[in-house]
Design a protein around this nucleic acid. Structure first.
Lengths: 152, 152
DNA sequence: CGGTACCCTACTATATTGGTAGGGTCTATA
DNA sequence: TATAGACCCTACCAATATAGTAGGGTACCG
């Protein structure tokens, strides 16, 4: 399960993507509109900035904005910053490999053999989905919802 | 990341699968051979038993054994018992659905739309892999390792 | 130069994880 | 039927992670 922190961060990123090219957005506005505790959101955005995903501007007219266009930011990048590696066991992580203490032969570990496939499946989706892709999915889902309501 | 508890449990299950049809196995033997803290393992095996995955026999000649043949126990079933739902967000779980508090329209939630695919990918693998499959993978990995060593 | 808005450190409460301790209960068998 | 073998059950504990809150510090725009 992904943490609340990660969900908040993703909601904020999606919001910033939707309002890309409208200039910096205030933490306070983001917090109010997405119903996220302001101080908590502040910390999340800061760490996204420190990891190159967001940029910020101080002072009047300041705020946060995406560091790259929505089509260049993947969910995988963002989630790794907030929730750590995608891999279910550290010994199959591509970005944060670590040996599993309880396993002596990595090549023949049954758990590892299966979890490698799981990691690849997860990473395949999350590294292949950008914020722009998410906006598109949401838009088309909203469209189908409207059509559905029309027939009801 | 899966918990240490789940890794211990899976190692125990794989061990029991490999020694299926050798009769009950002692917690103490399992703990020693797989290097798992005995008391901790005791609790894990008990919960696997209470969820129908294992069976046990008390008294002399007792121990734990699989509740079904290795080909009928999937990793998905076992992991759900020990680590909870496979889904990254509760609102896409098939076996333990729950509404996400921070989301008001499930049909058009961008996070949900993507996480649904992630859940399906994870569940596809783990519900499609049995203990027997794991044994097979391990055996063929050990075979390749031997061949490799031969040429070195 | 003043206010806006991000930046930084520290603190707290609660839940989860990874165990440990110490008996209780059932069961085979001698 | 006694007894030892082996699982069963309750309670506790320390360390870490999660989900925040508090209160200022610092940079920047106008």
């Amino acid at each position: 399960m992904i943490s609340k922190k990660t969900k908040y961060g993703l909601k904020a990123l999606i919001h910033l993507a939707r309002h890309y090219d409208e200039g910096p957005i205030l933490i306070a506005d983001l917090a109010r509109e997405e119903r996220i505790p302001k101080k908590f959101l502040e910390a999340i955005l800061l760490s996204l900035k420190n990891n190159g995903i967001l940029q910020s501007k101080k002072g009047k007219g300041g705020g946060y904005y995406l560091g790259r266009p929505p089509g260049k930011i993947t969910l995988g990048q963002a989630i790794r910053v907030m929730d750590g590696p995608l891999a279910p066991v550290p010994c199959v992580s591509e970005t944060a490999y670590a040996k599993c203490s309880e396993c002596d032969n990595e090549l023949t570990c049954g758990i590892r053999l299966v979890m490698k496939d799981v990691r690849d499946a997860i990473a395949g989706i999350l590294d292949g989905t950008t914020l722009a892709d998410v906006l598109e999915k949401v838009d088309s889902a909203e469209e189908s919802e409207k059509v559905l309501n029309f027939y009801i």
